[in-house]
Write a protein that binds this DNA or RNA. Structure first.
Lengths: 355, 355
DNA sequence: CTGAAAGCGCTTACAG
DNA sequence: CTGAAAGCGCTTACAG
């Protein structure tokens, strides 16, 4: 613990490139060159500067650098939430996207600013305009048609952004998304193979929610291949929460038992959270899964392995998704060509479908 | 789609305060005063400036502002991970902390930089020194003794930081944590009340992992109150993953059936993830929970509701935790008094303890 | 290969 | 109440 007799360092005041320059006996410009890896620096000079940098524990001031470069080295992740969502819970699927995006940013040497937004907030102004971030990653459920206009504004303003969601033909900006149609097909084919023909769908299936709609259509296509089809009487709206799923399943039971008298032998829930809510409603209603009804979800959130019975679902590759989102956004920021992309979906069979 | 005949805006070049000044017919300094809410501005002047700001969709450039103010308005969350952890999965408990911290930052008007770190990385340099953030929030499991030295360095350098974890007496910097000892007591009292006297503990219970150690000791204290005690022969190391829990439970079974011949009537898993792994091991081993063994976890992660049987556990108040972490860190950054704090723990009884 | 200088876009003490 | 000016800490074209 004895102090060596080096001059007492002035704490609190961080070293600047000028301090380094003095110490290394060069100009401040040369320090900057070394730090930015310029090739026009003599090897010995470089060595001296690097030594001083190490001794003073110097790091480039990011604000000064960003101001000068007009580039922040930072990406922002805006996670949109349903304003009705429970304060403390975020859809686990997005949480795992957040994890993979964070990792992808780290690998790409980018910092990541994370923010939860209400769809109603004034987000575009905040991030891109103030140059806090070079580009935006947009993530979240929500009514697509209601925020589409915002995307147009973003494009108009020249903001660089990539969206996670349905990959649609005439869409503003770029999107990375799961191949939801094929995911739906996998579900439909799986259920059809098990003899199901009356597949209920829990989830909005309109152009307001294009991801869900694609899942619905994919399932429909697979049923049609065996002479069946989805029945609109078996579709009940639900957005994304467990409670939505619970309510939707109750509604489905009411239709079956009420005047509607519609029968179903399987349920395709548009998300795992919806499926979990539905599972609860069925358990309360005395319906056995998969005995009486087979159940399939979508997303493969961690909890899907632990539901009772364990949930058959469609996994989206969140690791690749995060990488692709970051990669695509950086291409955009660098003015390089970039395009929307769809990622493969994969069926994960567990007990709830009784396969 | 027809363009109104407004002059074609020059895109790409964001407006600066000088543009606003020209438009409002004032000096650039006055624009800055208005934007920072200075009281020394005439009401009419203020109005004109605000109008120009709106018209040009102006936002203050954060880098310039931060450079001048020597303050970034940004906090950084460093999430440490076990280097051995599965790439794609983060402990759900930390994910929910992340959620609450993000919200707390938003409420406090702070931006949040999120980064995953290995305990071995050179993190302190990166964030505080480069002034990317005004302060750090440190989150994560890991061997406390092995990173303690880093905390000392942080303190020495005058870095502002708050740590989530065990609140220890002689600790460098401030910590916010759950009252782990009391959490353990709740578990011990609950199990004792159900007649258990032989409680196994799955988790490291050394000063390397002070949070787990406190949980262990709390449970021990509660058992002692009824004339029992924890038995070191029933403690098996496990860090935090499900696989650790699985392995630890297997080891426990081996001890019971092998030369050790140690009996147990309950298991207290140091985390829910460990409990979930143990549940799997017991199911494979043909042990019924809670019939043969009662099981209690810690954290109340979302999946705890869905395990089979549903997991009795100790909930930590992540919402308050996030708020307190941010609040405390901001006090530190502002040079105001701040202190370490413990948050209450709450027992959540579900089926796995057979209560 | 290196240095002196301009300038990125702000904020605020200073002078009126 | 307002403006002119200095300066936050960098990066890089320019001139040698």
């Amino acid at each position: 613990m004895s102090r060596p007799d080096t001059p007492a360092p002035r704490r609190r005041t961080k070293a600047t490139s000028i301090d380094i320059a003095h110490r290394a006996g060069v100009s401040q410009a040369t320090v900057s060159r070394v730090l930015r890896g310029s090739p026009l620096v003599n090897a010995e000079t470089r060595r001296r500067v690097e030594e001083a940098v190490r001794e003073l524990n110097y790091t480039v001031d990011r604000h000064a650098s960003s101001l000068r470069l007009q580039r922040s080295g930072t990406l922002a992740l805006l996670l949109f939430e349903d304003p009705t969502a429970d304060e403390s819970h975020i859809n686990p699927f997005f949480l795992s996207m957040l994890g993979s995006i964070t990792r992808a940013c780290a690998r790409a040497g980018q910092d990541l600013l994370v923010s939860f937004q209400q769809l109603s907030d004034d987000w575009h102004a905040d991030y891109a305009d103030s140059r806090k971030a070079d580009g935006l990653i947009l993530l979240g459920y929500g009514d697509y048609l209601s925020y589409r206009g915002r995307l147009d504004t973003l494009v108009e303003q020249g903001t660089r952004f990539v969206r996670w969601g349905a990959v649609l033909p005439d869409q503003p900006g770029l999107s990375i998304g799961c191949d939801n149609f094929h995911g739906g097909e996998l579900v439909g084919a799986h259920l059809a193979g098990l003899g199901c023909r009356r597949v209920a769908f829990l989830g909005d299936a309109s152009s307001h929610y294009p991801e869900f709609l694609d899942r619905y259509r994919g399932c429909d296509a697979a049923l049609r291949a065996v002479g069946g089809a989805m029945d609109p009487a078996l579709q009940v709206d639900a957005q994304s929460s467990e409670d939505d799923g619970y309510a939707a399943a109750r509604e489905l039971l009411a239709r079956r038992d009420g005047g509607g008298a519609v029968a179903f032998d399987a349920v395709f829930a548009a998300s795992d959270l919806i499926a979990i809510g539905a599972l609860r409603a069925f358990e309360e209603g005395g319906l056995d899964v998969p005995g009486d009804v087979r159940m399939v979800g979508f997303d493969d959130i961690p909890a899907a392995r632990f539901t009772h019975p364990a949930l058959t679902t469609v996994a989206q590759d969140t690791t690749s998704a995060g990488e692709l989102l970051v990669e695509t956004l950086l291409a955009l920021v660098d003015g390089q060509p970039a395009q929307s992309r769809m990622l493969p979906a994969q069926l994960v069979v567990r007990r709830s479908s009784g396969a």
